[in-house]
Amino acid sequence: MYRWDFAPVAAHLDLLAIGLFNTLRLTGAALAFGVALGLGLALMRLSRRPWAAWPAGLVIEVFRTTPPLVQLFWFYFAAPLVVGVEMTPYLAALVTFSIQSAAFFAEVFRAGIESIERGQWDAARALGMNRGQALRRIVLPQAVKRMIPAFMERAIELMKTTTLVATISYADLLFAANEVSQKTFRPLETYTAVALAYFTVIYGASLLARRIELRLARSGEGTVG
């Protein structure tokens, strides 16, 4: 019977804490850039001008259909050779996961925007709004509410996918776990503790998201005006 002993792991909590901080920093930054960039890509793809729609579509499809590990290697190992840009592991990871999230969010934004009834555009235009005003004031605020579940799902997925950065030696939580388990010879305890950390953060975040959703639902959204 295996005897669990978490004491050696607890002795290295500082390392794990730094790892967790790095994971959260990367996830948070990639989400923020991903949302902003994703909105841009979605608007380009919805544009009637082919020179805007076509490149956006290409970026979205390429990043949605290739494995994240390949993308990461591409930015970290290939980019310096091909375009001559040297990247730190953090920067390479940030660029990869930002664009990858953007590709995903672009489709979420597009679906959200397209789900808004024609009558909303009609009412906005009839008031004399231009396309940008209608989008900003009328369509996006409603679309974003409908996007929250997809957004949360992506945030969770991303936090787990960022574990791939351990492969390019970025000191995220999993990388720290690897280090700790080698120092303590307690891999089971270390990875169990790390799984618990992921669970706590992600479950906490989804509870928060559910509360936000409920609050928004109470403000009257969900019925055709």
């Binding site: 009609d122 009412a123 906005a124 009839a126 409603q142 005006g225």
Partner: peptide, 12 residues
């Protein structure tokens, strides 16, 4: 000004 059959109020 335009008033629509289905109102088209802004629900948010």
């Amino acid at each position: 000004g335009m008033v629509f059959q289905h109102f088209n109020l802004f629900p948010h």
